[in-house]
Lab assay of single mutants.
Amino acid sequence: MADEEKLPPGWEKRMSRSSGRVYYFNHITNASQWERPSGN
């Protein structure tokens, strides 16, 4: 997916099972956040 290609290394887009909202998860640091991480 083009959107995921633009995410910084380690980040992936996921869907919250409880709320149905999109969030972002970093599998390197195990961090998660609602806001899209910047690629800069």
Score class of each variant (00 low, 15 high):
Met1Gly: 08
Met1Glu: 09
Met1Trp: 05
Met1Thr: 12
Met1Ile: 12
Met1Cys: 12
Ala2Ser: 12
Ala2Trp: 06
Ala2Glu: 09
Ala2Pro: 04
Ala2Lys: 12
Asp3Gln: 11
Asp3Thr: 15
Asp3Cys: 01
Asp3Pro: 15
Asp3Lys: 10
Glu4Leu: 09
Glu4Lys: 14
Glu4Gly: 08
Glu4Met: 10
Glu4Tyr: 08
Glu4Asp: 08
Glu4Trp: 05
Glu5Lys: 10
Glu5Met: 09
Glu5Ala: 09
Lys6Ser: 10
Lys6Glu: 10
Lys6Gln: 09
Lys6Trp: 06
Lys6Gly: 09
Lys6Ala: 14
Leu7Val: 03
Leu7Pro: 01
Leu7His: 01
Leu7Trp: 00
Leu7Arg: 01
Pro8Cys: 02
Pro8Ala: 04
Pro8His: 01
Pro8Lys: 03
Pro8Gly: 05
Pro8Thr: 00
Pro8Asp: 02
Pro8Ser: 02
Pro8Trp: 01
Pro9Glu: 12
Pro9His: 11
Pro9Arg: 06
Pro9Trp: 02
Pro9Asp: 10
Pro9Ser: 09
Pro9Thr: 10
Pro9Gly: 08
Gly10Lys: 01
Gly10Cys: 05
Gly10Pro: 13
Gly10Glu: 06
Gly10Asp: 06
Trp11Phe: 03
Trp11Gln: 01
Trp11Ile: 00
Glu12Met: 06
Glu12Arg: 03
Glu12Ala: 08
Lys13His: 08
Lys13Ile: 09
Lys13Glu: 12
Lys13Asn: 03
Lys13Met: 10
Lys13Thr: 13
Lys13Arg: 11
Arg14Gln: 03
Arg14Phe: 03
Arg14Ala: 03
Arg14Gly: 01
Arg14Thr: 04
Arg14Asn: 03
Met15Gly: 04
Met15Tyr: 14
Met15Lys: 10
Met15Leu: 13
Met15Asp: 07
Met15Asn: 08
Met15Thr: 14
Ser16Asp: 14
Ser16Gln: 13
Ser16Cys: 12
Ser16Arg: 03
Ser16Asn: 15
Ser16Thr: 14
Ser16Leu: 07
Arg17Ile: 02
Arg17Thr: 15
Arg17Ser: 14
Ser18Val: 10
Ser18Ala: 04
Ser18Lys: 03
Ser18Trp: 07
Ser18His: 04
Ser18Pro: 13
Ser19Cys: 08
Ser19Phe: 05
Ser19Arg: 07
Ser19Ile: 10
Ser19Gln: 13
Gly20Cys: 05
Gly20Ser: 03
Gly20Met: 03
Gly20Tyr: 03
Gly20Arg: 07
Gly20Ala: 06
Arg21Glu: 07
Arg21Ala: 12
Arg21Val: 08
Arg21Trp: 06
Arg21Thr: 06
Arg21Gly: 11
Arg21Cys: 12
Val22Cys: 12
Val22Asp: 02
Val22Trp: 11
Val22Gly: 07
Val22Arg: 04
Tyr23Val: 05
Tyr23His: 02
Tyr23Pro: 01
Tyr23Asp: 05
Tyr24Lys: 02
Tyr24Ser: 02
Tyr24Cys: 01
Tyr24Phe: 09
Tyr24His: 00
Phe25Val: 08
Phe25Gly: 02
Phe25Met: 02
Phe25His: 10
Phe25Pro: 02
Phe25Gln: 06
Asn26His: 05
Asn26Glu: 01
Asn26Arg: 00
His27Met: 13
His27Val: 14
His27Ala: 14
Ile28Tyr: 03
Ile28Trp: 07
Ile28Glu: 14
Ile28Val: 15
Ile28Pro: 05
Thr29Glu: 05
Thr29Lys: 07
Thr29Leu: 12
Thr29Arg: 05
Thr29Ala: 05
Thr29Asn: 05
Asn30Val: 01
Asn30Trp: 01
Asn30Thr: 04
Asn30Ala: 07
Asn30Ile: 00
Asn30Glu: 15
Asn30Arg: 11
Ala31Val: 15
Ala31Thr: 15
Ala31Lys: 12
Ala31Gln: 08
Ala31Cys: 12
Ala31Pro: 00
Ala31Leu: 14
Ala31Met: 12
Ala31Trp: 09
Ser32Gln: 14
Ser32Ile: 04
Ser32Trp: 14
Ser32Pro: 03
Ser32Gly: 06
Ser32Leu: 06
Ser32Met: 13
Ser32Ala: 12
Ser32Asp: 02
Gln33Glu: 03
Gln33Ala: 08
Gln33Gly: 03
Gln33Leu: 02
Gln33Tyr: 08
Gln33Pro: 00
Gln33Arg: 05
Trp34Arg: 11
Trp34Glu: 14
Trp34Val: 13
Trp34Pro: 10
Trp34Gly: 08
Trp34His: 08
Trp34Cys: 13
Glu35Asp: 14
Glu35Met: 07
Glu35Gln: 09
Glu35Phe: 03
Glu35Ala: 09
Glu35Asn: 06
Glu35Lys: 14
Glu35Ser: 13
Glu35Cys: 07
Arg36Ala: 13
Arg36Ile: 07
Arg36Phe: 10
Arg36Asp: 06
Pro37His: 00
Pro37Lys: 00
Pro37Glu: 01
Pro37Asp: 01
Ser38Lys: 11
Ser38Asp: 04
Ser38Thr: 15
Ser38Pro: 03
Ser38Asn: 15
Ser38Phe: 08
Gly39Thr: 15
Gly39Trp: 09
Gly39Phe: 03
Gly39Lys: 05
Gly39Pro: 11
Asn40His: 13
Asn40Val: 15
Asn40Lys: 15
Asn40Glu: 15
Asn40Gly: 11
